[in-house]
Design a protein around this nucleic acid. Structure first.
Lengths: 345, 345
DNA sequence: ATCGTTATCGGGAACGTTACCAGAAATTGC
DNA sequence: GCAATTTCTGGTAACGTTCCCGATAACGAT
């Protein structure tokens, strides 16, 4: 039962490949009986067009490439689910690559996907990506790209983001309203847009509430929480401060869980000694000890929107003048890690 | 800066495509100066061979397909990381597809990957897959396939599994030794091999310790924990028993967290009223309330072994007589969800 | 000088598909 | 009844690459 081709059909049916091809595409210029003949035989033989041949011919592949830092992270895996559901419905396939927060792998993945003739790219930057020429070149060639969440700064691009400023503002405000004054912020490297935006929201919330911003309360982790030691020292440095914080606000998924892990390990009571609140999409935040107050991003919806936009760009390649930015809302889910429970005396 | 082909090189260098092709492959029958000329020009123009054309020609793609239930699950995302690292080093690319525990999507993904000419397949069955003809056909055609974890029963195949019997036995024994007698088992559908093996280990441990097996303590969840309601009723039915269990042993990742979620929701104290122990690879089990005792599978190593085996099968297509089964060990990590803490009086 | 070798290169086919260009047969119009 | 049109089908090139088969020249060897 080898795979059957148009040539095979043509041979057994005594037709030319052109005729078979057109019959299969239901072309108007083919006799109905011939069509029926071909279609039935193709059906019987379980004919499937060879996508490789099609790709080679049309240099397009009906597939979109996804480059993300890592899939073992609920935000990104939910994002992928959002991407897949739309792509699937619109007849596109999704090819996923992880950069593992490495610039080199991001570049390698990009090159490979391009040579594989993906029709478009969905990208969330690695935390170590500072140089963007690999994407800029593609953009100039006209490759449709939509960036998600971790988007480049200072380039005109299509992007799907959340209102990081507000999400961060709201979170910080919540901490202030629940009585915290010395709020630390553990975040990603400054050259990522999400970092500056979240930092700005945090800072604004502090200042709007009469708390002066203190740079020593801000820690930047370059590996996005992938290296526990980095996180550990960040937290330790915070604890060593003359006035250690009474709350930590973490800016990304990994950072949040690894900070919590460090706090537990150091036997610091949450929320009594230290409130904890973080950006994360973990599905099990309510199982944590204590259940974790989180800023969650609409990952699935972001995937939907990004994919819709990308496929629109692919199928209607217009003048690339208007770059679209869609900004979605985060939601703050309050649980026990920021609110002291009233213990019965 | 369009992509450059062998033809382009041939034209500008006044050579034939054959010569250029051979020069690039460093063939012996090409003059060293010509070689140098071609190689330097190719380098300068950043020539990259078109993998699509190569695939079409050789009907192989230097890529392997992965079909798993879902990536938003730590076991599978760790598995993927294991797969990727080996594949990457051996020059293969990895194409990931999710079945979302749906038989239809598993079949669709399989067909697509085959038409995309992947050189081999790594598969972990969906929980709703009972018919295996889509894989059996491929096997007969000689497609290299290695199954992982959720493997078919009653077929001769290559597979990487864990010693489910022992993992389960050990877990159940731990529950017994910590004083539990009425141990429930929440698991996947019976037609999955992991289900019967884990069930057998559970049963054996009970009987070896003088506890008779009671079918009413076993609940099968067909959607692998994807549907919370199914889980909820399972737990509720256990609680409604004349003698409700004092421990629940869950057999898979999703099942474990969703059971815990139900228990918390019903305000049942863990481990005092109910011990909980489950198969899961979640990286945050220690953050849970209480920290969760888990049976963890060596997911990354399983990915390594499966990929090594698969690539060996791809590159050395021998007689398919000897089917290899590699069985790895699980490890029981004891935390508070099964051990009552001594509370200060 | 003729022939077999060696070194070096080009031509063409093939992988599976579609699009363009023709051409034959059938049908229409007058 | 003949030209014009419609209806249907076939041939071929092209996408990028490799490989098989020849071809050409130079070079000794006989």
């Amino acid at each position: 039962m080898e795979t059957i081709t148009i040539k095979d059909i043509a041979r057994t049916l005594n037709l030319s490949t052109s005729t078979v091809s057109r019959a299969l595409r239901n072309s108007y210029e083919i006799n109905n009986e011939t069509k029926k003949l071909v279609l039935e035989y193709a059906e019987k033989m379980n004919y499937r067009p060879n996508p490789i041949a099609l790709s080679l011919r049309d240099s397009k592949s009906k597939s979109i490439g996804v480059i993300i830092p890592e899939i073992a992270n609920n935000f990104f895996s939910q994002l992928i689910n959002g991407i897949e559901s739309i792509a699937y419905n619109m007849g596109y396939h999704v090819v996923i690559f992880q950069s593992h927060e490495s610039y080199e792998r991001e570049v390698a993945n990009t090159n490979y996907l391009v040579s594989r003739k993906v029709d478009g790219l969905l990208v969330s930057l690695s935390s170590l990506t500072r140089d963007l020429t690999h994407f800029e070149e593609l953009l100039e060639k006209g490759m449709p790209i939509v960036f998600i969440d971790r988007v480049p700064k200072n380039i005109d691009i299509h992007k799907i983001v959340v209102d990081n400023f507000f999400g961060s503002y709201q979170a910080t405000e919540h901490l202030i309203k629940t009585g915290r004054r010395r709020i630390a912020h553990v975040t990603s490297p400054l050259y990522l847009s999400i970092t500056t935006e979240r930092l700005a929201g945090y800072r604004q919330a502090l200042e709007d509430n009469g708390i002066s911003f203190d740079e020593s309360y801000v820690k930047y982790c370059h590996h996005g929480g992938m290296m526990l030691e980095e996180n550990e020292t960040a937290v330790q440095e915070l604890l060593n401060l003359p006035e250690p914080p009474d709350a930590i606000f973490t800016a990304s998924d990994r950072l949040t869980t690894s900070c919590m892990s460090v706090l537990i390990q150091k036997n610091i009571k949450i929320p009594e000694e230290m409130a904890l609140l973080g950006f994360t999409n973990t599905s099990v935040a309510e199982l944590f000890n204590p259940p974790l107050t989180t800023v969650v991003q609409p990952a699935i919806d972001m995937g939907h929107q990004a994919t819709e936009l990308l496929i629109r760009l692919i199928e209607h390649p217009k003048k690339p003048t208007i770059f679209e930015t869609r900004s979605l809302q985060t939601s703050l889910i309050i649980r026990d890690s920021t609110v002291e429970k009233i213990v019965n005396a």
